[in-house]
Design a protein around this nucleic acid. Structure first.
Length: 223
DNA sequence: TAAAGGATAAACAGAT
DNA sequence: CATCTGTTTATCCTTT
């Protein structure tokens, strides 16, 4: 089922519908002008800018309010029909990320610095708040993938790019055994929040579109 | 205690 | 042929 996730998004609620302003800055709409895919990417109302994204903000997106959950439900119902198996609801799918907001152990909203900030992502957060570089990041692989894609210029990444982003931002994985890469791929396959797309000509591997419909309605892509 | 989510490992197939 | 990518299954641990 390639290129199946071309569903135009539903009308987006305002950012304030998510329980207050999101820690995202406004930026021009992300379009399908990328050379990577030919899919008509959906316009987004409040895409996060790469520089503004931090692990904590990404986790915050996952932990959007119940109100956002309600709004997203409508989106998912539509998406179920047009993108996924019409007989299976995303709401019922255990791989759907929309239930993350129900977790009670979500991280606070304040941004956390990356352990080894990239030049463009440096933070002014005091270092005493930074977790040890050798400690495992307190984020699920789904969150890490989300952050990696969100941090990419075109909201899409190859698997290798996801690996690189994680390694660059979480030194823990520099020395970790290769099993985490398997986990990344496992999550990409298992989670229906990530949809695969084709690369354009000249691209080597297959493409994937990540559709975080529930949280920010921003199509994100890995390939 | 059971159920569920997440992490991890492994096997396998297909693509490059 | 080696490596990478993607899928699936199984198991274990933690949390609810």
């Amino acid at each position: 089922m390639e290129n199946s996730c071309q569903t135009p998004p539903p009308s987006f609620p305002s950012p304030t519908a998510y329980g207050g302003p999101l820690p995202f800055s406004s930026s021009p709409l992300q379009t399908s002008s990328s050379s990577h895919i030919s899919l008509p990417l959906s316009p987004v109302s409040f895409p996060p800018s790469p520089a503004s994204l931090s692990p904590a903000t990404a986790e915050s997106v996952h932990s959007s309010s119940p109100l956002s959950h309600c709004a997203a439900s409508q989106c998912l119902e539509k998406r179920n029909i047009q993108c996924l198996n019409p007989n299976i609801s995303d709401q019922d799918d255990l791989t759907c990320l929309n239930w993350l907001h129900q977790r009670g152990n979500l991280l606070p909203l304040q941004p956390l610095p990356k352990m080894t900030p990239l030049p463009q992502l440096e933070s002014s957060i005091p270092t005493q708040h930074m977790p040890s570089a050798s400690s495992k990041p307190p984020y699920s692989f789904s969150s890490l993938i989300f952050m990696a894609i969100e941090d990419s210029p075109n909201k899409r990444l190859p698997v290798k790019g996801i690996y690189d982003w994680i390694v660059n931002n979480f030194p823990y994985y520099r020395t970790a055994s290769g099993g985490w890469r398997n986990s990344v791929r496992h999550n990409l396959s298992l989670s229906k929040s990530f949809c695969r797309i084709q690369r354009d000509k000249g691209q080597v591997r297959r493409c994937v579109i990540l559709d975080q419909v529930l949280f920010c309605f921003t199509p994100k892509i890995w390939y």
